[in-house]
Amino acid sequence: MTRSPPLPAAARGVIAKDRGALARLITSAERRDPAAASALRALYPRTGHAQIVGITGPLGVGKSSVINGLLHHLRSIGRTVGVVAVDPTSPFTGGSVLGDRVRLERDPSDAGVFIRSMANRGHAGGVALATREVTRLLDAFGFDVVLVETVGSGQADIEVRDIASTSVVVLVPHLGDEVQTLKAGLFEIADVFCVNKADLPGADLAAKDLRELVSLGPGPGGWKPRIVTASAREGQGIPELWNAIGAHERFLDETGVRADAERKQLAAELLALVTEMVEREVSSGLERDPRLRELLDRVARREVDPRSAAELLASRVRGRRAPGR
């Protein structure tokens, strides 16, 4: 590990608080561009200061509106805020409409705010492959708090817990049967529940139901999820939500759970990166392998079964990787 090489220009831009440089570096990270990797390497020692909060929950519950509320609350108490809002990519066209900005009102001359929309580009789990690196870039830039909004696909939106120190699950009073499916998955990552749209009837009942659910047993390290009711539209309950998030952060520090949790997140990140690297190598290797087509023909003629064909290909890939190791 060398310490002395000069900083890449992109990293220098981030350190100099050049918003355009930050934005371009985020684009590079999304493209899995090697330039982003070297900038991230240089910036890594400067990260670890931002508080990263995940805002997840089913479609349309008010995640962006809650983020808008938090944004204004945080600015009013002098904290700077980065926002990363993820929306789904169409698996058919590769395109997407990223609409979360519509809900985010802000003063465009306020340098204490930076908002970035991301398409998930086919990644499952409610965030994009590059979302963690994007939060890290915002961290290195110096934002105090980074808010991450997930796709909003419901039960599967759980990967944000590998990125955030506190995960907020936003719900609305009447989720009906959907609650049953959310109990597995989404509910299990909640450090804080936010029952939004409390201006609609039924919020108190929903909060009561949640309280019962939560009382069934504490989560990792003994934390019992907080439940907050809010109306993002009317600006109600947002300071209370921020207090509940703060309570969880204090719990992490006072119990020593934070170090453990961060280690788990880093382990998940390393595994994801290795998987990405190997997958890329394997798929590009296979694409170039003329024997793949021939093998495919044989599978189609039912001379070879798919698993045997896959084992053959896998052993070739391993064979290619073996020398030099």
Binding site: R101, V102, S109, F114
Partner: peptide, 24 residues
């Protein structure tokens, strides 16, 4: 196949330009 950042109604020129920069 494009990624469309939809900023919505009643955007001031300042908001539009800041959004364009942040979204690169």
């Amino acid at each position: 196949g494009m990624e469309v950042i939809y900023a919505g109604l009643r955007q001031t020129p300042e908001e539009i330009v800041e959004a364009a920069i942040e979204e690169d």
